[in-house]
């Protein structure tokens, strides 16, 4: 079996076998490939980069070239069991709208987000007075595609405001270990990223 990113492994654990999955921003299709073989899911993907799409389709995955922010609206409500967004929410122009659409077209949504409240990030900003550049978020401020950073607490507050229920939480540290199964002030400090299983108010 192919080796996949830590947050993708946690996402995969949240997916029931034989379900219908849409992976938004599926990249080279690693998660889709893993899910279709390990969990026999009916997987689809949307990917912005043509290189990613070509790799996916050439490997037999059902992936379209498209932009989540414009193309998710086409799908009917409840079309998938899971709509997955791995490490991409912070790059969206309208993250709230994307979250809303994901919860509409999926019975569940699974989102992984990098935590801007992580202690190393806070420390860098405090000590150097400059925008943090970390191992996982290795961009300078002027080149980063990540235009909407949030802390884990910010994310949780947004889901509350939108009436989205968090059914499962995994907070992971820099080594990819799960440090917490629930959100807390401490998790917001020690977690480098969070993975959330969400259910919309209509689901």
């Amino acid at each position: 079996m192919v080796d996949i990113r830590d947050d993708l492994k946690l996402i995969a654990e949240m997916v029931e076998p034989n379900s219908r999955v849409l992976d938004v921003g599926c990249g080279d299709g690693a998660l889709l490939d893993y899910l279709s073989h390990a969990k026999n899911v009916d997987g689809r993907g949307i990917e912005l980069s043509m290189d990613g799409v070509r790799q996916c389709v050439a490997h037999g995955l059902s992936v379209i070239q498209g932009d989540a922010e414009t193309d998710l609206k086409d799908y009917p409500a409840g079309a998938f069991d899971y709509v997955i967004l791995g490490q991409t929410l912070q790059a969206m122009r309208q993250p709230r709208d994307v979250l809303q659409m994901m919860c509409r077209i999926g019975r569940r949504a699974i989102v992984s987000v990098p935590n801007f409240g992580y202690w190393r990030v806070r420390l860098q900003l405090m000590l150097t007075g400059r925008m943090p550049v970390t191992e996982k978020l290795g961009y300078q401020w002027w080149e980063t595609p990540n235009i909407h950073f949030c802390t884990l607490r910010d994310f949780v507050v947004l889901t509350e405001e939108m009436g989205i229920t968090i059914e499962q939480t995994r907070i992971i540290d820099r080594a990819g270990r799960v440090t917490s199964h629930a959100h807390s002030g401490l998790a917001n400090l020690l977690g480098e990223q969070g993975v959330f299983l969400l259910r919309g108010n209509g689901g």
């Binding site: 799409v53 992936v63 079309a79």
Partner: peptide
């Protein structure tokens, strides 16, 4: 082609789509 893809998405059909450069 994209218009066809959008219509197929609207019924959640199984579709792949690539634009070749």
């Amino acid at each position: 082609s994209r218009a066809i893809v959008h219509a197929l998405n609207a019924v959640a059909a199984n579709v792949s789509f690539v634009e070749i450069e």
